[in-house]
C-alpha cells in the first residue's frame, strides 16, 4: 500500500476553493492544510459559513460546479493526489474508500427508491455484488446501525422514517464498503437534541470498530471534546488553530477559538458564569477584511492585524495557530 505507517492517511495541502458570485470570485476555502491519521477522529469546527462543508465536499471533488471550483492544492489520500485522478478513478474512491454523511437526513435519501436499494447500492457498484446478496448485506448493515425490524425496512421508503432513523441509514450506507475514512458533515445538526448524542455515539462506535478515520464537522465545540482526537478551527475559509482535543480545550490559543470556547456551556464551570457570545458577525466572503479576517471582532487586535494575514505557526507538539499577538495565549 502506498501510505506507510508514518505518513498520514489524508494530507491536504493548500486547498483553495473559489465560488463565482454576483460580486466576483470568493475563496470559500483558502489555503487549507490538514492531516488525518488512519483511524483518527478529526473535528472541524467553525461558525456557519466558515467553509467546513466546502472543504469536506472538495475532498471528494463534489463542489457544485460550474459555480465552484478547486483552484489550488493537493488532497493526498493513501499516497495518491485525489485532485489528479480521472473520473473513473475518483468514482472508485467515493463511497468506497472515503464515504460521506450529510447534514440533511430528510433530503439526502432518494424519496423514490427503497431503503434496501439505497443501502445495497455501494456493494453493487464497488464490489459488483449481485443485488440479492447486496440486499442481504444491507440488512446486516441496518442491524448494525440498530434499525429495528431491518428485514421489513429494506422495502420501505425514506418518508416512512424519522430524521434520526434516516441518519442511521446514511451511516449504514457510508459504512457499506468499509471505507478508510468517513466524512460526517454536521450529522446531527438537523436532528432532535435527544437523538443527537445517540447518533454521534453510534458513529464513533462503528468507525472505531471498522478502524475508519472520521472527519467530524460541527459548529458545536461541545461535541468535540467527547468524540475528537484532534481539532481544526476554521474562520472565513481558513484554519486559524489546530491541535489535539486537549490543546484546544486546555490551551486554546487563538482569540477566535477562545471566544468560541467561552461561548459554550461547560460542565466543569460554574453554571452561573455567563456565556460570552462572540460579538459581531462572521464577515462576508465577498468583502473580507484585509489582514486577519477576524480583526474587526478581535479583542486583541493590534498593529499588524489589519494589514497582514497571519500564517499557521507551530506552538506545540501538534498545536498550530495563526495569530500575531502573543498576549492572546
Amino acid at each position: 500500500m502506498a501510505g506507510s505507517m508514518t505518513s498520514p492517511l489524508l494530507q491536504v495541502r493548500g486547498l483553495t476553493v473559489q465560488f463565482r458570485t454576483d460580486r466576483g470570485f470568493v475563496n470559500a476555502v483558502d489555503s487549507v492544510s490538514l492531516n488525518v491519521d488512519a483511524g483518527e477522529t478529526l473535528a472541524v469546527v467553525g461558525e456557519s459559513g466558515s467553509g467546513k462543508s466546502v472543504t469536506a465536499l472538495s475532498l471528494l471533488r463534489l463542489v457544485p460546479s460550474p459555480q465552484g471550483r478547486i483552484v489550488a492544492g493537493e488532497v493526498i489520500f493513501d499516497g495518491q493526489d485525489l485532485l489528479t485522478l480521472d473520473d473513473r478513478q475518483m468514482r472508485a474512491v467515493r463511497g468506497n474508500r472515503i464515504a460521506m454523511i450529510f447534514q440533511e437526513p430528510m433530503s439526502s435519501l432518494n424519496p423514490t427508491l427503497t431503503m434496501g436499494l439505497q443501502v445495497a447500492e455501494p456493494f453493487s457498484i464497488h464490489d459488483g455484488t449481485p443485488w440479492a446478496a447486496a440486499l442481504g448485506k444491507a440488512k446486516t448493515l441496518l442491524d448494525r446501525v440498530r434499525i429495528p425490524d431491518s428485514g421489513a425496512r429494506l422495502a420501505a421508503y425514506p418518508h416512512q422514517f424519522s430524521g434520526g432513523m434516516r441518519q442511521r441509514v446514511m451511516i449504514a450506507m457510508a459504512l457499506a464498503c468499509r471505507p478508510r475514512m468517513i466524512i460526517a458533515d454536521e450529522p446531527t445538526t438537523a436532528l432532535d437534541v435527544t437523538v443527537q448524542a445517540q447518533i454521534l455515539d453510534l458513529l464513533k462506535e462503528l468507525t472505531q470498530e471498522t478502524r475508519s478515520a472520521l472527519i467530524l464537522i460541527t459548529h458545536d465545540l461541545g461535541v468535540v471534546a467527547r468524540y475528537a482526537d484532534r481539532v481544526c478551527v476554521m474562520y472565513a475559509g481558513r484554519i486559524v488553530e489546530t491541535g489535539t482535543a486537549r490543546d484546544i480545550y486546555e490551551r486554546a490559543s487563538h482569540p477566535y477559538t477562545r471566544a468560541l470556547m467561552a461561548s459554550i456551556p461547560r460542565l466543569d464551570r460554574d453554571t452561573a458564569t455567563r456565556l460570552e457570545p462572540i460579538e459581531g458577525y462572521p464577515p462576508s466572503l465577498a468583502q473580507l477584511p484585509p489582514g486577519c479576517a477576524f480583526h474587526p471582532r478581535c479583542r486583541f487586535a493590534a498593529d499588524p492585524c489589519g494589514r497582514r494575514v497571519p500564517m499557521l505557526e507551530k506552538i506545540g507538539e501538534r498545536h498550530h495557530r495563526a495569530c500575531f499577538v502573543d498576549a492572546a495565549v
Binding site: L60, L62, A92, G95, F102, S108, L109, N110, E121, P122
Partner: peptide, 26 residues
C-alpha cells in the same frame, strides 16, 4: 440540485446511474 443526488455522487455512482436511477423518476 437535490441533496439525494449529491448523495448518489458521493456513493461513487457514474453519471448514467445518477440520472437514470436517481434523477429521472423524481
Amino acid at each position: 440540485r437535490q441533496d439525494y443526488i449529491r448523495t448518489a455522487w458521493a456513493k461513487g455512482l457514474g453519471e448514467k446511474l445518477v440520472v437514470m436511477r436517481h434523477a429521472l423518476r423524481n
